[in-house]
């Protein structure tokens, strides 16, 4: 017995050791990747609190105490280029309305295709699947040309209204409904005398809350970070109209970038809100990506 134990016990211990070693090495590798992921943002936050002259002197690990001074200098030097509060406001107006339109109309379209039987049902769904693949960049030229013709450049409409047609999100909502929205509920609501729109608003929307929440988060992030479309449509160089990413890009293009502490402060002001939101919502975001969330 004891001999057997020594014969069969040995490899097992060896095996466990191997697994532990491999896990340890991988943990170390993940730590390195974590540092690479965080380092640029860490340097950014630290440098936002330091003086320009100190930044020239080298890197630092602990934050300094000049954040207030940098913000004051920002108001002085970049006052007409970077107005964070106005940037937040403009980005928020566009992002909130676009996100609302995206989720509401995607849910409506998915509901229409899922619940009703009509002749063009399959055709329209196929069309939605096909147009999912067309890159937005391809339509940009015609879009701008058309918007210029009907005089919508320099307004927020071209940034908000197109959000109502989001094929990828319709596709996601349809597959969600297929798995968790039985049609009997609609029948039951009809028998109880509920109108079709009321059924959608008071029964379907609450039942689709998880899908709507995930897609709302992604639509929000995508719109908040969008730089291409706003800078294409908002042609006038008025700072009052610009979104936050546009303000950041205008800092980059200006030749007043000599004070790096201020530049870092501006970038930090544009990044920090979204990182805070991410820390709070990371669980849902990661779950959403795993669900096959829309990749930009």
């Amino acid at each position: 017995m004891s001999k057997m134990k020594s014969v069969y016990g040995q490899p097992k211990d060896n095996y466990m050791f191997k697994i532990r070693l491999k896990s340890g090495i991988l943990f170390f590798w993940c730590l390195i990747l974590t540092i690479i992921c965080v380092l640029p943002i860490y340097i950014l936050v630290i440098n936002a609190t330091r003086l320009d002259t100190d930044i020239a002197g080298g890197l630092a690990i602990v934050p300094d105490k000049y954040l207030g001074r940098n913000i004051r200098a920002m108001k002085q030097n970049f006052g007409n280029l970077f107005k964070p509060l106005i940037g937040y406001r403009n980005s928020a107006i566009i992002t909130v309305s676009a996100t609302f339109l995206t989720v509401f109309f995607s849910a409506l379209t998915a509901y229409g295709i899922h619940v009703y039987e009509f002749k063009l049902k399959e055709v329209s769904y196929t069309v939605i699947l096909l147009i999912m693949m067309v890159p937005t960049q391809v339509t940009a030229t015609g879009f701008l040309n058309f918007m210029a013709k009907i005089g919508l450049v320099d307004t927020y409409w071209p940034l908000i209204l197109p959000a109502a047609a989001a094929p990828a999100i319709v596709f996601f909502m349809r597959s969600y409904m297929k798995s968790s929205f039985p049609l009997d509920i609609v029948e039951a609501a009809r028998i109880d005398g509920s109108g079709e729109f009321r059924t959608f608003l008071t029964i379907a929307i609450p039942m689709m809350k998880p899908a709507i929440a995930v897609q709302a988060i992604f639509a929000f992030v995508a719109n908040w970070n969008n730089f291409y479309t706003p800078s294409m449509i908002l042609l006038s160089s008025k700072t009052e109209q610009k979104t936050l990413p546009m303000m950041i890009s205008s800092i980059q293009a200006s030749d007043k970038t000599s004070d790096l502490g201020v530049v870092y402060t501006c970038i930090a002001l544009s990044i920090v809100p979204i990182i805070i939101a991410y820390v709070l919502l990371s669980r849902y975001i990661i779950a959403g990506v795993a669900l096959g969330g829309v990749k930009e």
Binding site: L108, K119, L120, I131, G142, P162, A164, A165
Partner: peptide, 29 residues
Amino acid sequence: YAKYGYIFILPFFLVYFFFQLWPLINTFI
């Protein structure tokens, strides 16, 4: 209830036509 199907998907296709399909054709033009 077929007409509701059309009503529900109409906004999507209207917006799609004006802001994506027509711009795509316009790009070709």
